[in-house]
């Protein structure tokens, strides 16, 4: 059983309410119908009812067990609009009504009002739009100020590593980098169920080089440690020191509890993170799942625009496991 199959099985026992704001997209409709049929979760499709019914008929699927909501005509519309306007003091009811007509905002407010558990979008919306809508409606976790993302890398020997951030933050500052480390550790614990070992990566190992780029990483490690001392995190490390025990023992006087056995790699910027995940994928023949968004109060996922039905189902399972 591969990792996604394991996630799908686990999701079945949770029965999460997954809201899909892009119900007008045929791939989303097909994925939602599969999720309902296989009892992976309870999908809620947002969009034009007639269009969604047409998609279902075309796919020879029954609309009977699928929840479909048209935001504007939904019985929740007024309640959610009032809730939004009450939270955002500069937003009038008229503006809030316009916002709630947008499926991404309506979907986020369904979660905010505890009428859904998690949200999967991005098949036809930009990442920026998904993140901004989620930030406005669901909001960030208490000690988090920015959204970030991670990739689940499954190596051929079934070793699992999380890479972050390889998709969202181009040049995170010290605070953002520390948050990426903390939120990725939490995501790892929730999804994999093992203790996270977070290595903050650099071209330097514990002071072997002096440079402002190294300082950023060491400061992020200190900040992350002070924010959440319960997480096993350390750095700055070169990648080999983080991953290979013999190298860690050779390069460090005291290797500590992360060096050599890291299962989470935090990259200093998007250049290094994005390059590293693609190299791992193609040269090491690893499977890469993601990017999975993190940092919000409730899970939100950003699909690739080219996502296929099976990708949407897999991402939905990952998202529902993060609740």
């Amino acid at each position: 059983m591969n990792l996604i199959e394991r996630f799908l099985e686990k999701a079945k026992s949770l029965d999460r309410r997954i809201v899909f704001p892009e119900g007008n997209d045929e791939r989303i409709v097909e994925a939602a119908a599969f999720i309902e049929k296989e009892k992976i979760g309870h999908p809620i499709l947002l969009g034009n009812k007639q269009k969604i019914h047409e998609h279902l008929l075309k796919l020879n699927l029954s609309p009977d067990n699928i929840s479909i909501i048209e935001p504007k005509s939904s019985p929740y519309f007024h309640e959610l609009t009032e809730l939004y306007a009450a939270r955002r003091k500069n937003v009038s009811m008229a503006i809030a009504e316009r916002l709630l007509c947008r499926e991404l905002i309506f979907g986020g407010m369904l979660i905010s009002a505890n009428k859904a558990d998690c949200l999967v979008a991005g098949a036809s919306n930009t990442t920026a739009n998904v993140i901004q809508s989620a930030a406005l409606t669901i909001g960030y976790q208490d000690d988090v100020s920015t959204a970030s993302s991670f990739f689940i890398m499954v190596l051929p020997e079934n070793k699992i590593l999380f890479y972050a951030d390889c998709a969202v933050n181009i040049d995170p500052d010290v605070k953002q980098l520390s948050e990426i480390g903390i939120t990725t550790a939490r995501s790892f614990k929730k999804l994999i169920g093992e203790e996270p070992k977070v290595a903050f990566l650099s071209f330097s190992t514990k002071g072997s080089a002096n440079h402002p780029l190294v300082d950023k990483v060491t400061q992020a490690v200190q900040l992350a440690k002070s924010k959440d001392p319960t997480i096993d995190l350390d750095g700055e490390f070169q990648a080999d020191t983080a991953l290979v025990k013999q190298v860690a023992e050779k390069k460090l006087k005291e290797s500590g509890s992360v060096a050599g056995i890291a299962n989470i790699l935090i990259f200093p910027d998007l250049n290094s993170g994005n390059i590293a995940y693609k190299l791992t994928q193609y040269l090491a023949k690893a499977e890469a799942y993601g990017p999975v968004l993190q940092g919000f109060r409730c899970p939100v996922s950003d699909l690739s625009r080219g996502a296929k039905v099976k990708d949407i189902v897999g991402v939905s399972a990952i998202t529902s496991l993060q609740v």
Partner: peptide, 26 residues
């Protein structure tokens, strides 16, 4: 803040009773 761009777009749409192409407006 970057997240307020969606609220600005909705504000303009409401004020002028128009629907704008979202990605371009943002």
């Amino acid at each position: 803040e970057s997240i307020q761009s969606l609220e600005l777009v909705a504000g303009f749409e409401s004020e002028f009773d128009i629907s704008m192409e979202e990605d371009a407006a943002l």
